[in-house]
Design a protein around this nucleic acid. Sequence first.
DNA 1: AATGAATGAGTCTTCATTCAT
DNA 2: CATGAATGAAGACTCATTCAT
Lengths: 180, 180, 180, 180
Amino acid sequence: MTSTRTELAIKAGYLFQQRGYHGVGLSEILESAGVPKGSLYHHYPNGKADLALAAAEIAATEVLRIIDASFDEAATYRDGVTTYCYKLAKYFDIHEGKIGCPVSATLLGGPDNAVFRETLSTIYSRWMDRLAEHAVRFGQSAAQADHNARRLFLSLEGSWTLARARGDSNVIRELPSLVC
Amino acid sequence: MTSTRTELAIKAGYLFQQRGYHGVGLSEILESAGVPKGSLYHHYPNGKADLALAAAEIAATEVLRIIDASFDEAATYRDGVTTYCYKLAKYFDIHEGKIGCPVSATLLGGPDNAVFRETLSTIYSRWMDRLAEHAVRFGQSAAQADHNARRLFLSLEGSWTLARARGDSNVIRELPSLVC
Amino acid sequence: MTSTRTELAIKAGYLFQQRGYHGVGLSEILESAGVPKGSLYHHYPNGKADLALAAAEIAATEVLRIIDASFDEAATYRDGVTTYCYKLAKYFDIHEGKIGCPVSATLLGGPDNAVFRETLSTIYSRWMDRLAEHAVRFGQSAAQADHNARRLFLSLEGSWTLARARGDSNVIRELPSLVC
Amino acid sequence: MTSTRTELAIKAGYLFQQRGYHGVGLSEILESAGVPKGSLYHHYPNGKADLALAAAEIAATEVLRIIDASFDEAATYRDGVTTYCYKLAKYFDIHEGKIGCPVSATLLGGPDNAVFRETLSTIYSRWMDRLAEHAVRFGQSAAQADHNARRLFLSLEGSWTLARARGDSNVIRELPSLVC
DNA sequence: AATGAATGAGTCTTCATTCAT
DNA sequence: CATGAATGAAGACTCATTCAT
């Protein structure tokens, strides 16, 4: 049972990922979360921007969780990558192919705000660092691990985009053979 | 000397790339292009959507031109990739790091429209096909060429995003060592 | 036949005089003037503040007109003052005693803006100067005229307020015996 | 050491005098007084209107106190007026010229409520009566005293306004030479 | 071919208030 | 007695679009 506050951020996150920060109205978010109009500013005093930051944070953490779930039980690094991509592809399908990178549309599409860009930069670094940690765990050198983590991350970002354009999650599933 | 119609699309393109389809108002576009309020619907009867499609088309063609310019005078495929990335990084810097992939923010951030997604999908394919053609020209097999073209394209899409988040065009310049 | 633009400012002026800048909503003004919602920003690009400034300017000019009408046909300065006060009292009654100084509630009650205060200061000076001119015309020295003009103006401002508090326009009519 | 209830009314009073009843939000008042959000309706069950009435009452009493302090130690009526104006001018300066008549903006700018107008009317009468009492004490006839009290009061109301418009408290200090 | 005026649905946000604890 | 959470109406304003000229 999630709190109203969290529920709001999760639903907002999905919508932002679909149509970007400016493409989603507060009223739609409120309705989607079943939260009355005036309540938003109780939970997020700074309004939409606050909400977007919270939404990105939640989504970013969820991605970290997926990374760990994918690599923790993997036999090899490549296995981890494959599982990771399959999970993301499934996530993509669940949302009917309307959804992209869980944070970029929210934060890059938002106000031209230093906080937004820094938050995004930090989130990306956290993801790459985590991927690299797992790579190291599988025996790669620090340099190799960083190299591979960045390669995976960049291609994945691109894959989200291409998958949405084509409406086809297989773009994501085919990624391992491309980067490993 | 570009026509009013084209000027409009070019300026709109830059703005869309910065803040997405919904993040830019028509009035801002009109002002940026120095075009009077009521004129838009003469040049683009369907309004904003028409304009965005035109803007994407122009930007897409410009990218094709850059690809050719980069590879036509290259000694090796890798040289072509490097030049290509440097040109894009420079383009990124010229626009003060505010600009992303020349078409994705415009079309993916736009209305949830089949035409938009198909247009985007086609543009992406054209880019990858052109990259592959050059790869073939440098002796790669069709399969290798497709593989490398997609790898470059996906990573490049990701690089635009990471570069914007970090405000650093070097992300793009470092790409060749990552994908070649 | 007044233009939509002017009609808007006049009606807004009455409402601002009744309940102050912040006490009146744009929707009420629009409705009172029979002007559709989106039209305001066509006529007054800066919105409510623009409208308030225009409303004050119109009201200020109208007061000047009343001053002239009162003194131009007067036999003595005191006669002019009396006529002036009677006209204002009548104006007060027409608006059911709900209305105060034609500009102070609009501009002093508005945003804490230098432009607003300067506009108000200028309007007040214009009124006092005009009163003094008429006084001079009736043979008063410049010093006497300024003295009397300020005395009349200040008391009149106070009278608007007291008249509204008591709901009685006689406060204004009794003014001549107080200041002459 | 003032109670929370009183503190609330005093701080609200200053704010209302600056920007009028509708120009000040409850949240700003609460914050200014350091009182928690939900507490207001304990002290003032009828909310903002109650608070405004209380604020006006406190301010009105304070004015009475200033009148007495000014005239009690005066050698002549004119001396009393002068001291009174100087005290008010100082009060004006302390609040950075942002503050007007201690009660009119609060009550006239408030809801179009009979209670508000009656309260205001009563306060004004109390002030004028008190001024007249002092005038009588200095030897004036009842009629003279009333006449002078009203003249002073009305001019003073006007002076508050002109002083705010000009941002200059000397308007108030110059009053004695105008009305005595 | 070109355009300034006009529009109403929509934007985000703040409001004064009530209520459960 | 005190208060943080919650709320729906209203706030000012911007939007993409249409239309008469």
